[in-house]
Design a protein around this nucleic acid. Structure first.
Ligand SMILES: [Mn+2]
Ligand SMILES: [Mn+2]
Ligand SMILES: [Zn+2]
Ligand SMILES: [Zn+2]
Lengths: 157, 157
DNA sequence: ATTATAGTTGCAACTTAGTTGCATTTTTGT
DNA sequence: ACAAAAATGCAACTAAGTTGCAACTATAAT
């Protein structure tokens, strides 16, 4: 979602979703559009600095609206913090990798419908509207850090 | 995990895991063994009534130990509440269904290794140690309730 | 231009999940 | 029975997320 997003993109998205375009909503949208990884609410707020600072509650309300209108999707990550990412045509639902050590969340290759379809053996009387595949472990950054530590003689965490 | 679990099962599990057997740990273990669905910490505590009541912190510490020793596994559910279930040979990792309306979490059919394997296109430099597949929507109970409401002339929520 | 109306924001207060430090109690090994 | 080690309970805390309400802002009608 990073490819040189402009303010116009944000305006268009709000317009298409029939949402009134306030500076706060545009600010949040621009942050999400610019980000290369899913963000949690704290991260979004840290990026809303200076003139763009927005009350915590407002951020939650904006995100809740965006989610309801299908503009963003939520990623339920281990560790009790929810992440969000843009939900566009070019960014279909996909698995995520969450690092146990640093908490980083990154996107993995999307599944085709047929691939994901076969793993839903939900009883027929459930109506499915969302699938999350969350994979966790240790990211390359953290693994390298640990290796360096071991080489320099220090013990495990 | 419901099939007539006895106190002996709990003792055996603790023994095999080389964990000292305290009444608190046995009480938690017995609740998990008896439950037919994954439980969250609040549920576990509600079931620890009377003589068996245990401090909230102790419950967290016990569960954290059980998880570390592979006795239980955690299910990261939508809504910020984590669920737990017994992690035994006969109960391999499997997808879960979480109802958006009532919050109920239920177990779905397990995936074979080859099935789950193909959906992990993690970059090679990540080390994967956990996969969660969470499916959410509306459970049959809630759907029926909604239908009855509609029939009796009331509107949607 | 004035005013009514609905929608949006910010603030304060609250709830709930989970954690940390420390004193007291219980297990366990001798 | 006893000492060391481990486990528990309590109080206090953090962090995510929610609710109610008053103030503000855009819009639409007069
Ligand atoms: Mn993603
Ligand atoms: Mn299960
Ligand atoms: Zn990491
Ligand atoms: Zn339900």
């Amino acid at each position: 979602m990073n490819n040189n997003a402009t303010d116009k993109d944000g305006l268009n998205i709000l317009q298409r979703a029939d949402i009134s375009k306030t500076p706060q909503r545009l600010a949040v949208l621009n942050i999400l559009l610019k980000s290369t990884t899913p963000l949690n609410v704290s991260c979004v707020r840290e990026l809303l600095t200076g003139k763009n600072r927005i009350d915590r509650v407002t951020v939650y309300r904006i995100l809740s609206l965006f989610k309801q209108r299908g503009i963003i999707r939520e990623i339920t990550s281990t560790g009790g913090v929810n992440f969000i990412e843009m939900a566009t045509q070019e960014n279909p639902v996909h698995p995520h990798f969450s690092c146990r050590s640093c908490g980083m969340l990154s996107c993995l290759e999307p599944l085709t419908f047929s691939q994901s379809h076969q793993l839903i053996s939900a009883k027929e009387d459930y109506s499915v509207d969302h699938i999350e595949i969350n994979i966790s472990g240790i990211c390359s950054g953290c693994r390298n850090a640990t290796m360096l530590q071991k080489q320099s003689g220090k013990g495990e965490q």
